[in-house]
Nucleic acid binder design. Structure first.
Lengths: 334, 334
DNA sequence: TTGTAGGCGTTATCAC
DNA sequence: GTGATAACGCCTACAA
């Protein structure tokens, strides 16, 4: 390995001076700068970020912790994160935890040992143990599309309650009155519950009631779950003219089930999804959906984290705007 | 920050001993081990991987370089990579380059500066400059779903020529004779050309000729490109009964175009994709496609890289098996 | 403008 | 078994 000493020798100067010109610190003549740069070039020297980190106590690296892979959202988040990280001069270490507490803990510990400057914790519920751990370390953390039960760390989220509420009134505005929902996990306090609650109350606001038989629940937000839940829902409630799916993946599952059951979308039943993931543009018919600005959320989270790392003032949790993107899966009833 | 010195003081011993018990090196009494462990626990000490890396000259971190985000393959590769990396005790730094040579070079340099133990270069053509650079450094590199023009670095790939050839004979076996192709980029030597060549020669093998009007080309493998190319192809060649799309994304684009044009799939025209990405299960009809073992390829690439890092024998390029997954988009002609 | 020297938190080589 | 102490490659006072 070729070090700063080699460069110094080649340039016939000291390592201090080499360090100065490499880091653009000024305080050296143009001549020596030339010499040093030439030496760097000819030797192919590349400074050792590890050594630098050790002394400046910063790695310019952040860690991102994701739950299971199955979700298509993850990748869009990651893109947003990586974009601004790159732009701000940070590298990003990713780890998947499959929502296993043990693995989450290991990932966290590993990131801390590697001395990342900050951590983005995405899309997953945080266990008490992990929260305690993170609080003990002083490492900056921001939550992405999730939040801690307390106000310990800032988060970036959409207002799921309001979003689901808006979906309900959207459907009502389109003239629907017999409306169902394929919900996510009713035990998921972060996304599951608010979407259900928001939707139900949105309907109530329009003087529509929805009883429990018109809502089905599942374990996750997957294609397969959407497929079977939608099947159950429609056999129990064939009168429905519109149903809200708690994710685009579920909605596309519903689409294939509708196809299997010979139900026309949107002619016979309207479908509306959630997320505006890549999927929603690709299905037939294309999905009308509640859009979360996924890439933007990743960017925002990373922005906030970098701010915290650089101690640029106080960072507050941020609620991202949502809106409904109209495509082809919802029919207006006259 | 709490260091090994603090632990040593707390445990009333030397840092050398603390280091020994932490690294399980033996050569200490059970009693001191207890003391040290207790001190570690009570202080919440976590060793500094940066400092360790500096001296052992290994970071237990690998870098992964991807091109643009648009591809859905990327994430599956990443999952495979991250799986075995985790299992082998490595962290992974990802970076996206948007296929911009400048940004690729920056990413590479950054990874080298951060002293990653190895690099996986995925899915993108390698420029001469980058190749030269990587060869100069002694850092292990493996190519994933791409390869260098020379035998400089090992790669993991599917045999695109043979795969496309197999697609051709598959379609022929199903009784099709009027067959078209929506190809990828004809300038893409890694994936574009072999798929085109393999497909054409597969047809010739069955005494079917395919002239240039039955093949359309595009810039990439995207949904949108598949959509418009398929439109062109079918208006020029309405007699076609089957078409091969060079990616699943393109195939799903074709599906929506077929829908727009009122062409039934597979009743009027059969479609076959390439990749077996998540998409192919989700479209209606579900796509018959040539499957690349995406996750497996990521795993294999990481496996090889770790082997190289650990200097466990010679590592050779690896051709992954491919096969056709039959779903609903190809009709058998009687 | 430049160089010397003391760390940064570890591991590893010696002695004891 | 255990403890000094010299690296690892760099940054940064402090001197000169």
């Amino acid at each position: 390995m070729i070090t700063i000493h080699d460069v110094a020798k080649e340039a016939q100067t000291s390592i201090a001076t080499v360090s100065r010109v490499i880091n653009d610190l000024g305080g050296y003549s143009e001549a020596t700068k030339e010499k040093v740069l030439k030496a760097v070039e000819s030797l192919g020297y590349e400074s050792n970020a590890i050594a630098r980190s050790l002394i400046v106590n910063k790695t310019h690296t952040i860690g991102v912790v994701f739950p299971n892979i199955s979700s298509m959202l993850t990748y869009e988040f990651l893109n947003g994160i990586e974009n601004v990280a790159y732009q701000k001069g940070f590298s990003v270490i990713v780890s998947h935890t499959y929502s296993k507490p043990k693995r989450m803990m290991e990932s966290l510990k590993n990131l801390i040992e590697k001395r990342v400057d900050g951590i983005i914790f995405a899309s997953d519920a945080v266990e008490k143990e992990q929260l305690e751990y993170l609080k003990k370390k002083k490492t900056p953390v921001v939550f992405l599309s999730t939040k801690a039960d307390e106000e310990s760390f800032p988060y970036v989220k959409v207002d799921d309650y309001q979003a689901a509420f808006d979906v309900a009134t959207y459907l009502v505005d389109k003239g629907h009155t017999k409306i169902g929902m394929v919900a996510g996990n009713p035990l998921d306090l972060i996304s599951g519950v608010p979407r259900i609650k928001g939707f139900v109350e949105g309907l109530e606001q329009a003087d529509l009631s929805i009883d429990n038989s018109q809502i089905t629940y599942g374990a996750d937000y997957s294609f397969e779950n959407g497929r079977v839940q939608f099947g159950h829902l429609m056999t129990k409630n064939p009168q429905l003219t519109a149903v809200f799916l708690a994710s685009d993946e579920m909605a596309s599952g519903a689409l294939t089930m509708a196809h299997e059951m010979g139900i026309q979308v949107p002619e016979e039943v309207s479908l509306i999804g959630y997320d505006n993931s890549l999927l929603s543009r690709i299905t037939i018919p294309a999905l009308t959906t509640l859009a979360q600005p996924l890439v933007g959320m990743g960017e925002k989270a990373c922005d906030m984290l970098v701010q915290m790392v650089n101690k640029e003032g106080q960072v507050k949790s941020f609620i991202m705007d949502h809106h409904i993107i109209e495509r082809k899966s919802v029919k207006k009833l006259i």
